[in-house]
Simulated assay, not measured.
Amino acid sequence: MGRPGIQMWTWKLCVFLSWMCVGQAVAGPQYMVAIPAILESGAETKFCASLLEPNETLEMSVTLMSKEANTTLMKKTYCQDFHTCTEFKVPLVQDEVVQNFVVEVRGDTFYSKEVRKVKIKVYRAMTFIQTDKPIYLPGQTVQFRVITLDSQLRPVNQLVSV
């Protein structure tokens, strides 16, 4: 504890700066949008959006942007607190891609735009082969079964050539 005066000023500065940050955050409307970072191609998924303490009528738009197309997932106008979850179908892609997830909140005196990245991944069906015992002796008949499951662990309804 060699320099208590410096420690005291450092402490006061930290408290003052955090008070300024909290003061700015509380002054205007607050919003939050939650979505998984990795989405499955072609699957149904959802995101949730919340808006707290709007001091004016605000329009919130949520868009999934790629090089090929922009998909507006939600565009609503609110003048009071709300919380909503919206389902949408993830675009079909052939290979793993990264797209921009854009949230824009706009009013007469308030504007905010956040851009985050989400990965759209293609999950292939997986095939499992199971035998009736772990070790066979020469000449024994091997009994086995084969099952193909999708990413939700549901059986895939397709024929496989032997």
Results as ranks from 00 to 15, higher is better:
130 Q>H: 08
124 R>N: 15
41 S>L: 08
62 V>K: 00
73 L>F: 04
141 T>A: 13
144 F>R: 04
83 H>T: 05
60 M>P: 00
53 E>P: 00
27 A>W: 12
139 G>L: 12
20 M>R: 07
104 E>Q: 15
105 V>M: 03
159 L>N: 14
138 P>A: 12
127 T>Q: 08
130 Q>L: 11
159 L>D: 14
10 T>L: 14
95 D>S: 15
109 T>M: 10
77 T>W: 06
64 L>V: 00
16 F>A: 13
132 D>I: 05
29 P>Q: 01
82 F>I: 13
145 R>W: 12
140 Q>S: 12
116 R>Q: 13
3 R>H: 11
25 A>T: 11
33 V>C: 02
25 A>W: 09
102 V>K: 07
32 M>Y: 01
55 N>G: 15
78 Y>V: 03
125 A>D: 15
156 V>P: 08
16 F>P: 02
110 F>L: 02
143 Q>K: 09
104 E>N: 15
41 S>F: 08
81 D>F: 01
12 K>D: 05
49 A>H: 00
111 Y>H: 12
41 S>D: 14
73 L>P: 02
136 Y>D: 07
138 P>N: 13
109 T>A: 12
112 S>A: 09
100 N>W: 03
47 F>L: 03
116 R>V: 04
47 F>I: 03
95 D>R: 15
95 D>W: 12
134 P>C: 12
83 H>C: 09
85 C>A: 11
72 T>K: 13
56 E>L: 01
92 L>V: 14
158 Q>E: 13
141 T>V: 14
76 K>D: 03
70 N>P: 03
104 E>C: 15
11 W>N: 09
10 T>N: 12
108 D>L: 10
51 L>A: 00
107 G>R: 04
159 L>V: 13
107 G>M: 04
114 E>M: 01
3 R>Q: 04
7 Q>L: 08
142 V>F: 07
71 T>V: 09
19 W>D: 04
149 L>P: 04
91 P>F: 05
90 V>M: 08
126 M>H: 08
99 Q>R: 05
49 A>D: 00
161 S>P: 11
137 L>I: 11
91 P>V: 05
100 N>V: 07
55 N>D: 10
72 T>F: 03
